[in-house]
Nucleic acid binder design. Structure first.
Length: 539
RNA sequence: GCGGCUAUAGUUCAGCGGCAGAACGCCUGACUGUGGCUCAGGAUGUCGUGGGUUCGAUCCCCACUAGCCGCCCCA
């Protein structure tokens, strides 16, 4: 038996690491709540169309990184059969299901009023499997019936749900009929995808529940796993966790205001500070309206025709495939050339320029440090105007801690009302990595006390004592009466700040022996005062 | 998806074509109600998986799987 392991790009999170994850999540919830955000939880899989339309068909995420599957094929087949039978049932006196197990088609033996036999096989498509199954059934039956009933006719029919090239019916060279049945068999079948990001899902929910009808700004945050089939690397997993938030609403609610952008950025700065992450930097840019961007890309492509041949091999390729990525190049020799390329700022319309300027004014006012980076471009199609990225050194190639921006046209792209918005997503995995690097030795939070019963008969009283202390809000680890005292001390010293001895004396007198590991001080404490005596310093 | 490096004890890692190693950690005892220090003893294991070469492979070769680094892309 081969050992089953977590699949590539996924991993288990264990204590004490999970404690750090919980702290990050708790901090996010606390900080976001101060800005009046509420939590939204959307499904982990959605209709594939949502991402194709929202994120963009041409992006790497959609074109090659999604976990997508077709759902509901079984349902579709039974619909097909029932529809076909409804139309043809009167032609037959007997219908027997003879489906071989383990095949992808359903096999019916139908006998008509004249005793003729017809084999009917249903399949989603005219697959090789289904055709050969049909052919062999017919051939076999013909061989038998030639002896049994010389006059009996045996025919075969393959019913499929996909359209046929030449019309609704065609005949194979073996004389088998292939018939296409049109209808709503695909209704229950749909292409589903594990979400590669959460913004599209949030906007879908916004539209579906008509949240815009409230007239209010919706401020929603989410915490959850996302899925992309990329090559795993440090800080990059196939199942990874994001914390994100979206501010979205009708324009009348102020959703388009540059103040929203600045407020979100200021909240993020507070969040990172509160988490104790130092050394982050914020890069900011505007990619303009939905019409500005294509104009800029065209200009960039034009400029690169001359410049690209002098650049690195990667850039030469990017110039063709994805010119915006040239701006991201890190090769030192290419930097002077990149400086000479057209800047997106020069291609913004006046409204976008004014919007961006207002964002900067608001940020300056509240003292959030940033750097305008005219080269900052984002990979998802829905971004407009303000885009940003918080980076942190020490994350290797995956230095983006958090990214986001405005998406003024996304709702319309998904068939919803006009609902401008701005949001971000941060990589929780990367955030935790950064925190772990910062606090080299993350001391696991010790229990307030370790209770050591000194014999087996004291186990039950020890549990009672533990319950008492736990009810008082203390974090208690419970030992075992079979341990030798030395062992109890050794374990206690590892997992708790203090040890409480429960021996026969203590049980009788109700006065417990408590020893603090840090100071080595040992004292007798009446049971009633124990909880107070063990209360640790607030962390 | 492409290129490079790696895979040995719970952990970090040495090692060698011929009995599987160290440090830390773990267990037992010296010490029957007092930890950290010390001393004595002990257990670690599919040497990532599968094939090949060889009398013999943890070691050499191939494939696979996984991880790390870079690219791509992104959070």
């Amino acid at each position: 038996m081969t050992l089953l392991k977590a699949v590539r790009g996924t991993r288990d999170l264990l204590p004490p690491e999970t404690e750090l994850w919980n702290r990050v999540e708790a901090t996010a919830r606390r900080v976001f709540a101060r800005y009046n955000f509420g939590e939204i939880r959307t499904p982990i899989f959605e209709d594939t169309q949502l991402f194709a339309r929202g994120v963009g068909e041409e992006t790497d995420i959609v074109s090659k990184e999604m976990y997508t599957w077709e759902d509901g094929e079984r349902f579709e087949k039974s619909l097909l059969i029932s529809k076909w039978l409804l139309a043809n049932r009167s032609n037959f006196v007997e219908v027997i299901d003879k489906s071989p197990s383990g095949t992808s088609f359903i096999d019916l033996e139908c006998k008509d009023h004249d005793g003729n036999l017809e084999y009917v096989i249903f399949a989603a498509r005219s697959s090789h499997d289904a055709l050969s199954g049909l052919a062999s059934a017919v051939v076999k039956e013909r061989a038998l019936s030639s002896e049994r009933r010389a006059n009996a006719k045996v025919t075969g029919r393959l019913v499929i749900s996909s359209p046929l090239p030449g019309g609704s019916e065609t005949t194979t060279k073996e004389g088998l009929v292939i018939e296409a049945v049109h209808g709503s068999f695909f209704k229950s079948s749909q292409s589903l995808t594990l979400r590669p990001e959460n913004t599209a899902g949030v906007v879908r929910a916004y539209i579906e529940h008509k949240l815009g009808e409230t007239g209010l700004l919706q401020k929603l945050y989410y915490i959850g796993p996302q899925f992309r089939r990329e090559r795993p690397q440090k800080g990059r997993y196939r199942q990874f966790w994001q914390i994100g938030a979206e501010v979205i609403g009708p324009p009348s609610a102020g959703s388009e205001s540059p103040l929203r952008d600045a407020e979100v950025l200021e909240m993020l700065a507070s969040f990172l500070d509160e988490l104790g992450i130092t050394g982050w930097s914020l890069a900011l840019n505007s990619v303009g309206s939905a019409t500005d961007r294509p104009r800029y890309i065209a200009a960039l492509r034009e400029a690169l025709k001359d410049k690209a041949p002098q650049m690195c091999a990667d850039c030469q390729r990017r110039a063709e495939t994805n010119p915006l990525r040239v701006l991201d190049c890190k090769v030192p020799e290419d930097q002077p050339i990149i400086e000479t390329l057209p800047r997106i700022a020069d291609y913004l319309d006046d409204e976008s320029k004014a919007h961006f300027a207002a964002v900067l004014v608001a940020l300056d006012a509240c003292g959030v440090k940033y750097e305008v980076n005219p080269r900052l471009v984002r990979g998802l199609d829905y971004y407009t105007r303000t885009t940003f990225e918080f980076t942190h050194g020490g994350l290797g190639a995956q230095n983006a801690l958090l990214g986001g921006g405005r998406y003024d046209g996304l709702s319309e792209m998904l068939g919803g009302p006009k609902a401008p918005g701005i949001g971000f997503a941060m990589g929780l995995d990367r955030l935790v990595l950064t925190l772990q690097a910062a606090q080299s030795e993350s001391a696991a939070a010790l229990a307030d006390a370790y209770i050591a019963p000194l014999s087996d008969v004291l186990n039950a009283p020890a549990l009672e004592l533990a319950r008492e202390l736990r009810c008082a809000g203390l974090k208690i680890e419970l030992g075992d009466g079979s341990f030798r005292l030395k062992k109890s001390f050794e374990i206690g010293n590892k997992v708790a700040r203090a040890i409480v001895l429960l021996g026969e004396d203590e049980q009788r007198s109700g006065i417990l022996t408590v020893k603090d590991f840090a100071s080595g001080e040992q004292r007798k404490v009446p049971r009633g005062e124990l909880a107070g005596a063990l209360k640790g310093p607030e962390i």
